[in-house]
Design a protein around this nucleic acid. Sequence first.
DNA 1: AAGATAACTTGCGTTGTGCAAGTTATAATA
DNA 2: TATTATAACTTGCACAACGCAAGTTATCTT
Lengths: 142, 142
Amino acid sequence: MKKKITSDPRSSCPINVTLETLGDAWSLLIVRDLMFFGRKSFNEFLNAGEKIASNILAERLQRLENAGIVTKQRDPDDARKYLYRLTEKGIDLAPLLTDMMLWAARYEEVTMPPEALREMQTNRAKFLANVRNQWELGLGNS
Amino acid sequence: MKKKITSDPRSSCPINVTLETLGDAWSLLIVRDLMFFGRKSFNEFLNAGEKIASNILAERLQRLENAGIVTKQRDPDDARKYLYRLTEKGIDLAPLLTDMMLWAARYEEVTMPPEALREMQTNRAKFLANVRNQWELGLGNS
DNA sequence: AAGATAACTTGCGTTGTGCAAGTTATAATA
DNA sequence: TATTATAACTTGCACAACGCAAGTTATCTT
């Protein structure tokens, strides 16, 4: 018997809908790792600075997969590994993550490459185009 | 004795910093209510569609106040009430909330005024300028 | 003075989270 | 080929967070 992963539909407000999928402390960190740090496997997420617990990571990856934000495939070079990657829906979270970075950079003490920050600030559209570009290049398609 | 509200500093990554303040299912709904629906008092938040519990609401308002995102003052017309309002730091969450709305509108079934959606999509900068403008008008300063 | 309302606060049972340890499948090594 | 290591989970358990209902205090309203 499968455990129930989905739960409540609180309202159809778009902000609420987004929060029901991503409104927790970990999901967007996984998306960040995929989008900006090139992390792809379970252990890479596990060792990624914020020290997520393995059971939480497993559940969040499942949720993100169910939500169509990431996909999972076996690593062709090592069948023990799975490689996770962002879908289009996932890469479209780039604006959201970018705004989170800009907001934190403005109001809190954060650590971030200054040149990345400056590009976000001075040319957001270009920065986002680059993110998408890098993502498409990184697909290494068959 | 005060209860400890703050907890963990997991990392100084700007995305993580934002998530440590706003990474839960309720905080941004309160910000939404303040920013887009003109809600200002405890009971208005309490009856706002998603049915937050009163103890959770009280704690989140305290957290938002501690984080400098909202301020609280007595209602001059009714001393039983407190009026909450966004700070500059709070209104600067408008881009973030806007991205959440756009993302959800693109990938999920949501309910939202079509003209608001179209303005976000076609002229994000103008939409954000309007939000800020409305907020400044709504201050009813002394 | 009595009842209603606003903003919380408290109790309590349920659910989610954070370690640590265990499991299974695959890979690398002797 | 047998042994050990690694990747991706899974399980157990203690503790914290959440959700609901009821209670409290201060401030109107009548």
